[in-house]
């Protein structure tokens, strides 16, 4: 993350420590502090705690649940479904009212909100068709982000999808045999590899998917 402390101090100078009767003026100091020390998702990094959070969520919440792990920040968060729009499901933290979300389409990550360098939207139909059918082939995928100027830029990647071996997936309430599908992608800015573990019905049970430069890859595991 590029950060110009001097510039920010100058710019934020007038809004720091303002007080007002309107709700619009959040305390400027708090905003600057929040940026200096980003807290992207509810942090659970201890494996013991993760395990406990997962079983608590499974006992307390009906419906779809998943566990997301952000590689670079090493954060774990238990997700519950908060909205469904066609084949897209939007997920948010199960344990808190924190307004940050992930969106997946049949298990493939298509959007994030309230994280850093949000993924705005994605076209993943071709990837999805091959992965669900557990077939090797070539797919083009598009991921859209906002740049520093708030303009949308697209990362268009050409991906080669290869069917791998069988593996047993045992997470949460899931205990099933899955096929490993590897998606190796090349784009102008970035090369990345995604991994999906798909059951006999074509459902993605576990995946490792590249998100952005800030988080690196994200592990998403279905819990029921």
């Amino acid at each position: 993350m590029r950060f110009a402390p001097i510039a920010v101090l100058v710019i934020a100078g007038l809004s720091i420590a303002a007080c007002s009767n309107t709700r619009k003026d959040r305390p400027g100091l708090a905003m600057v502090q929040a940026l200096l020390k980003p807290k992207p998702v509810a942090v659970v990094s201890d494996p013991q705690q993760v395990s406990q959070a997962v079983s608590e969520a499974l006992n307390a919440i009906d419906g779809p649940l998943a566990l997301a792990t952000f590689e670079k920040t090493n954060n774990n968060v238990v997700l519950r479904e908060i909205a469904v729009n066609g084949s897209h499901r939007t997920w948010a933290s199960a344990g808190s009212a924190d307004r940050r979300s992930l969106t997946t389409r049949h298990g493939v990550l298509t959007a994030t909100r309230g994280l850093h360098q949000d993924l705005l939207s994605s076209d993943v139909s071709q990837t999805l068709a091959l992965v669900k059918a557990r077939r090797s082939g070539t797919a083009t995928r598009v991921q859209r982000y906002l740049d520093g100027e708030d303009l949308i830029y697209e990362v268009t990647a050409t991906c080669s999808i290869v069917r791998g071996g069988q593996t047993q997936v045992q997470v949460g309430r899931i205990n099933r045999t899955a096929t490993e599908m590897t998606e190796t992608c090349q784009s102008a800015e970035r090369n990345f590899t995604n991994l999906y573990r798909v059951d006999g019905s074509g459902r993605i049970l576990q995946s490792v998917q590249w998100l952005n430069d800030f988080y690196g890859t994200t592990v998403i595991q279905q819990l029921r």
Binding site: A4, L120, Y145
Partner: peptide
């Protein structure tokens, strides 16, 4: 400093 913004969802 934070492309895309760090505001909540």
């Amino acid at each position: 400093p934070a492309p895309g913004g760090a505001e909540l969802a």
